[in-house]
C-alpha cells in the first residue's frame, strides 16, 4: 500500500476539523482569483507560508516538498515577465504561491483516514438519493491501491521471463502481457468478491 503525505500532530492546523480546512481552502482559492493587487497577494502568500511553517515543517523541507510546483510557478512568472508585463507577473506568482502553500498546509496536517471519513460523510446525501454507492466507491479506491504493487511485481516478472528467453526489454512487449495478466487478475478478484457477497445489496434494486 502507499502511505499518505499527511501526518497527525498537535499544532492548531492539525486540530482543526477536516471539513473546515477543506472549505476554507476552497474559499481562499476562489477569493484569490478575484484579487489582482500584488500587495494583497504577497501578503496572502506570506500568511499561507507562515501557516505552513506553523505545522512544524521546516523551510528547507517545504522547499523540497514544493520544488516541482515552485519551478512551474517560477517558469510562468518568467513567461509573464517577458511576454506580458510586470504587473501580471507580480499578481500571478504570489497568487499561485499562496495557493500552493495553503493547500500544502492542509495536505500535511490531514491524514488520509480523516480525508476519507470526510469524503464519505460528504457523499452521504448523494448516497441517500441513490446517486452514488459509498461502499462500492471505497472498494474501488482500495482495490486500486492494492493493484499498484501487484502491477509493479507483474512487470518485473514479465521482464525477467523475457530476459531469460534472451529477449530485450521492449515497452510494448512488456505492457501487453502486463495488461492482459492484470485484467485476468482483476476479474478473478472481482469474482472472489462477488462470491463473498460484497458489496452488500442496496435497498434499491441495482444488483447486476
Amino acid at each position: 500500500m502507499i502511505d499518505g503525505i499527511g501526518r497527525s500532530g498537535a499544532t492548531p492546523l492539525h486540530r482543526l476539523p477536516t471539513g473546515l480546512k477543506l472549505a476554507a481552502l476552497a474559499l481562499v482559492a476562489t477569493a484569490l482569483f478575484f484579487v489582482d493587487r500584488p500587495d494583497v497577494l504577497v501578503g496572502a502568500a506570506l500568511v499561507a507560508l507562515l501557516g505552513l511553517r506553523s505545522t512544524g515543517r521546516r523551510f528547507r523541507e517545504i522547499a523540497s516538498d514544493l520544488a516541482l510546483p515552485m519551478t512551474v510557478i517560477a517558469a510562468l512568472g518568467v513567461v509573464d515577465l517577458v511576454f506580458v508585463d510586470v504587473a501580471t507577473a507580480a499578481s500571478v506568482v504570489p497568487r499561485l504561491l499562496a495557493l500552493a502553500f495553503a493547500a500544502h498546509a492542509v495536505t500535511l496536517t490531514t491524514t488520509t483516514a480523516e480525508l476519507t471519513d470526510t469524503f464519505e460523510r460528504a457523499l452521504g446525501p448523494f448516497e441517500r438519493l441513490g446517486l452514488v454507492d459509498a461502499g462500492r466507491a471505497s472498494l474501488t479506491l482500495t482495490l486500486a491501491l492494492r493493484f499498484v504493487p501487484l502491477i509493479v511485481e507483474e512487470a518485473r516478472e514479465i521482464r525477467e521471463a523475457q530476459a531469460a528467453r534472451g529477449l530485450g526489454s521492449h515497452p510494448i512487449a512488456v505492457i501487453v502481457p502486463l495488461v492482459v495478466r492484470t485484467l485476468v487478475r482483476a476479474q478473478v478478484v472481482a469474482d472472489a468478491i462477488d462470491a463473498r457477497g460484497f458489496p452488500p445489496p442496496r435497498n434499491s434494486n441495482n444488483a447486476k
Binding site: T140, L143, A144, R146, V148, Q187, A190, D191, F198
Partner: peptide
Amino acid sequence: TRDIGYIALFAALIIA
C-alpha cells in the same frame, strides 16, 4: 464487481 475491478486496475496502471 468485475467493472469495479477493471476500473481499479486501470487506475492502478495510471499510478504505476
